[in-house]
Simulated assay, not measured.
Amino acid sequence: MGRAYHLDGEYSATFFFDHFTHATVLRAMDGFGMIHDLDMLRLAETAFDRAIRGGRSVDDSATKAVVEALREAGAAEPAGIPRHKLATGDGWLITPPEITAALDAYQRAPYDDRAATSARIDDWDGWIGFLRLAGDFAGIRSH
């Protein structure tokens, strides 16, 4: 079992990791400061407020709207990609601002550390390229 990331929007591209490579990539991203933690309760409250505002009653469509709003919720000024969006394949939208923040953190890392990671993880350069592409479009979804 692995993880797939799909380019969101009008273009179609997918990046797939096997289970072990995905775990290795996440550890590397964490080490570079590309991943951060969000307060999920606060995001859930915000998503619920967005979905219910406007006087809609709570029914199946409102519940679906809350779930979708939560999948797309993120920090106003992200410091990187939220950990939960990479750790689970629940259709999270990883937004261009989150991707840009993660890539900025990566670029601030020492060149030797970036080169060592590239040499150690076969899919690393492809993944960084995929993130750059996704940051220029509508982001990516984790599946």
Rank of each mutant, 00 (worst) to 15 (best):
R27V: 04
A73L: 02
I121P: 08
H19I: 01
A44L: 01
V67W: 03
S142V: 03
T46G: 09
T63I: 14
S12G: 08
A23H: 05
A62Q: 07
V66T: 04
S142Y: 01
R141E: 03
L7E: 11
L43G: 04
F48W: 11
A47D: 00
I140E: 03
T88I: 07
D122P: 09
S61R: 11
W124N: 10
F17M: 02
V25W: 09
E77M: 06
T14M: 07
A75D: 09
G33A: 01
A87Q: 03
G9N: 07
D60H: 13
A138K: 15
A79L: 15
R120G: 08
G2W: 04
R56C: 11
W92M: 01
G89C: 02
H6M: 07
A134Y: 03
H36R: 07
I94N: 10
A4S: 09
A79F: 05
R3I: 11
M40C: 06
W124H: 14
F20Q: 10
F15E: 05
T63D: 09
L38R: 12
T100P: 00
D125K: 13
I35D: 05
L7K: 06
A51V: 05
G135E: 01
L41R: 15
R71N: 03
D125G: 08
T88H: 10
R108S: 14
L7V: 09
D104Q: 13
D18L: 06
F32W: 12
M40G: 05
T63L: 13
T88S: 12
E10C: 08
D30N: 09
